[in-house]
């Protein structure tokens, strides 16, 4: 199982974090969510980040997604130093370089699929015609070509998550960051979404999967385990003997 991607050449480094820490001040106490994490992610990797709750998994995901900045350490995204960016610069990175897929889909309930997928393009300053055309294309790519004028409440859970994936893809980001993408789906629909991710990976996308589900993580080509704010293990493929055991 772990050998299935060894034939692929490694692409250039997209994410390069070195020794980052993140402290949260909660009243009197300081919580050290990350205690020094280093990670390099290359283009067209498919990586799963696993760990029990409280391991710093979510915090690391927020860092990788440029939603938050580290307390200390270095973070370079495509060679740009993210750690010292201000809010608007981070917003621009999120807009162009990162495609988010959330557990709860986070679609705008009153907007059609098309409008939902267009949203990142609006923030990128793309003109309306191009916007609509590209959104429709991407929706067709994820198999929703006939659902572009449907609102989220007219779609099934799996279809909603497909809309969210289309939204993540539409600005051609450097990475797709999926946070428990199947968490709100039944296992069959979940498998469909995972098949979609596999397809995206085969087409050259970089995918970071944050999950605590072993079955889901098993789709990735590299697995990183976090525990107590540190990387416990980082290895290619999904090795049942190791990965099954460490998930708490």
């Amino acid at each position: 199982m772990e050998t299935r991607d060894l034939t692929r050449p490694r692409g250039p480094i997209v994410i390069d974090i070195e020794n980052i820490t993140k402290d949260y001040v909660m009243g009197e106490e300081t919580v050290r969510a990350l205690r020094g994490v280093s990670l390099k992610i290359h283009r067209n990797e498919y990586i799963a980040i696993m760990g029990p709750s409280g391991s710093g998994k979510s915090t690391l995901m927020n860092m990788l997604g440029c939603l938050d900045t580290p307390t200390s350490g270095r973070y370079e995204f495509n060679g740009k130093n993210v750690a010292e960016m201000n809010d608007d610069e981070l917003a621009a990175i999120r807009n162009r370089e990162i495609g988010f897929v959330f557990q709860t889909f986070n679609l705008l309930p009153r907007s059609t699929s098309l409008r939902n997928v267009e949203l990142p393009l609006i923030y990128a300053g793309i003109d309306p015609e191009t916007r609509e055309q590209r959104a429709a294309e991407v929706l067709a790519d994820v198999g929703l070509g006939d659902r572009i004028h449907h609102k989220p409440n007219e779609l099934s859970g799996g279809q909603r998550q497909r809309v969210a994936v289309a939204r993540a893809l539409v600005n051609r980001p450097s990475i797709i960051l999926a946070d428990e993408p199947t968490g709100n789906l039944d296992s069959k629909t979940g498998e469909e979404i995972m098949a979609l991710f596999e397809d995206l990976y085969q087409r050259g996308n970089t995918i970071i999967l944050v999950t605590h589900e072993r079955d889901i993580a098993a789709h990735a080509r590299r697995t990183v385990h976090l525990r107590d704010g540190l990387i416990e293990s980082d290895h290619a493929g999904f090795i049942p003997e190791i990965d099954m055991a460490t998930v708490g």
């Binding site: 917003a91 807009n95 959330f102 986070n106 990142p120 923030y123 939204r167």
Partner: peptide, 16 residues
């Protein structure tokens, strides 16, 4: 609030 969070994740700036 959640919608604002989503919009920010998708690249909406403070000004937006």
């Amino acid at each position: 609030t959640k919608e604002i969070g989503t919009r920010k994740a998708l690249g909406a700036r403070r000004r937006t």
